[in-house]
Amino acid sequence: MPRWLPRAMILALALVACFQLGSWAFHQLIGLLINVLIAFFVALAVEPAVSRMAARGMRRGLATFLVFFGVLAVGVGFVVMLGSILASQIVEMVESFPAYLDSVINWSNQTFRTELSRVDVQDSLLHSDWLQRYVQNSATGVLDVSTTLLGGLFRLLTVFLFSFYFAADGPRLRRALCSVLPPAKQAEVLRAWEIAVDKTGGYIYSRGLMALISGLAHYVLLEFLTVPYAPALAVWVGLVSQFIPTIGTYLAGALPMLIAFTVNPWYALWVLGFVVIYQQFENYMLQPKLTAKSVDIHPAVAFGSVIAGTALLGAVGALVAIPAIATLQAFLGAYVKRYDVMDDERVRGSRPRGRRVLRQMNRALRAGNDPRPASEELGEPR
Rank of each mutant, 00 (worst) to 15 (best):
F243E: 02
V316Y: 14
M257A: 11
F331V: 13
W270C: 13
D340G: 11
V240F: 08
A230T: 00
L222P: 05
L225D: 04
V276T: 10
A260I: 01
M342H: 14
I322G: 05
G201K: 01
P245F: 04
A292W: 13
V341T: 13
V227E: 09
L313A: 14
D344Q: 13
S206R: 11
V271E: 07
Y335S: 14
G273F: 10
V263C: 13
A321G: 08
D343Y: 06
L216V: 12
L312W: 12
G273A: 07
A196S: 09
W236V: 07
V316D: 09
V240W: 05
A196L: 10
F274Y: 15
T262L: 14
G238Q: 02
Y278V: 02
L251R: 08
V301W: 13
I244H: 07
F331S: 14
L272D: 00
D343Q: 13
F331M: 09
V316C: 07
G201S: 12
I244T: 07
A302I: 06
G314Q: 05
N283Q: 09
G333Q: 14
A334Y: 13
G333D: 15
Y205L: 15
V220M: 12
A326F: 03
P265N: 06
T291G: 01
G273V: 05
T262Q: 15
I244M: 09
I297N: 07
L332C: 10
D344S: 12
F303T: 15
T262D: 12
P299C: 04
H218A: 12
L313S: 08
A234Q: 02
F224Q: 12
H298C: 02
L216K: 07
G317C: 03
I325K: 10
L221Y: 07
S214A: 11
D344T: 14
I244C: 07
P265M: 03
Y219R: 11
I259R: 01
G317N: 02
I322F: 03
L209T: 11
V316L: 09
L272N: 01
V271W: 02
I325W: 10
L319C: 09
A308S: 12
L332T: 15
I325P: 01
A254Y: 12
